[in-house]
Design a protein around this nucleic acid. Sequence first.
DNA 1: GCCGACTGAATCGGTGTTCATTTACAGCGC
DNA 2: GCGCTGTAAATGAACACCGATTCAGTCGGC
Lengths: 204, 204
Amino acid sequence: MVQERNKGAEKRERILQSAIKVFARKGFYNTRVSEIARTAGVADGTIYLYFKNKDDILISLFNDRIGKLNDEMERQLAALDSPSEKVKRIVSIQLGLLRGHKDLAEVITINLRQSNRFLKQYAAPGFNRYLDIIAAVIQEGQQSGDFRQDVSPRVAACSLFGALDGLSLTWVLGTRDADRLARAGQQVSHIFIEGLRAPETTGT
Amino acid sequence: MVQERNKGAEKRERILQSAIKVFARKGFYNTRVSEIARTAGVADGTIYLYFKNKDDILISLFNDRIGKLNDEMERQLAALDSPSEKVKRIVSIQLGLLRGHKDLAEVITINLRQSNRFLKQYAAPGFNRYLDIIAAVIQEGQQSGDFRQDVSPRVAACSLFGALDGLSLTWVLGTRDADRLARAGQQVSHIFIEGLRAPETTGT
DNA sequence: GCCGACTGAATCGGTGTTCATTTACAGCGC
DNA sequence: GCGCTGTAAATGAACACCGATTCAGTCGGC
């Protein structure tokens, strides 16, 4: 019974893993269900015991993984104090995805944007939570006096996310040199931390 | 003869316009060629007199429009002197796309990323030129002493592009309030200009 | 009446999904 | 142990649909 449930979960996971791998290489619409099945070592029909349809694979994939990423992000940020350190950590986690989970990062960076409707309907909640986590860090920095107040935390969050996404995109399309990516991360952290820093209240 | 060529170009343009409109609403893969044809007021077959196939529509679309955007960007930047002003202009042009060419901006922001292969093969040249233009501005700022030297112009360019892309994405998915977008633009300019500013060489 | 542009219904290949059948296996009586 | 059996999981060939593309025919200007 319990073992069966485990086995079921394990198979579902194997299908998701395979989907990530194939989507990353071919893109969602150029991937056939039969190829995911083959990669996962199951029959075509088996996919439909675990997912409602092909769309559901992408949606489950995203929700599952972005949820874990958000949890991990919150956990790590909670252990840090300074807003600047937190910004650095956000940068390293988002770019770190490309190291540790290259295929997943590619799917999120490239293939997730399929259509307006898809994004709005399915990806928005997880994406918004991600942005909220970043925005909370910015706001915290503003309250502590580290960051300037005349920037909307939400705008800063979208920008930071976007900047990292842009770097990921060009990295995926280009050299894929890990060191280079790490250096880029430091520079982006720098730009944002300096760009957000509250002006020194000299005199008056 | 000439008129025919004009008429031909005009029809091609009408098809592109229609494609932009429909792609923006439904996404590339959920758009059927017959719908582009209907929107353009031509027969299905006519599309194939002007484009090799459906992919070719998206590719032509992107190359044509990104080319014009790059040209316009270069033209406007050439008329400005200070690197900070140039950064502000880059921001306002990229976000301005959403005002003036909402559908096009949506297609570029959301639907262009279809697959790794597609991006690498067809979109990369135009995209790289865009990044090069931004990177040149950063580099110029570094040479004039306005911007710090320890940030790679390319990294800064990817980040700035990405930040604006991220804002566009959330704006498209969310409120779509023009004023809010304009304010966001000012804030991003601010973050990047301050974040890139060379430290004052106090003393020593 | 010739030529090129245009039309749009028919074609045809491809693929997501289904479902009749098979397999795996746990429980059970002997 | 050992067959028996009921059930759930898995299979994969067949189906049904769909939409990109084609092309034989029409149109319109010269």
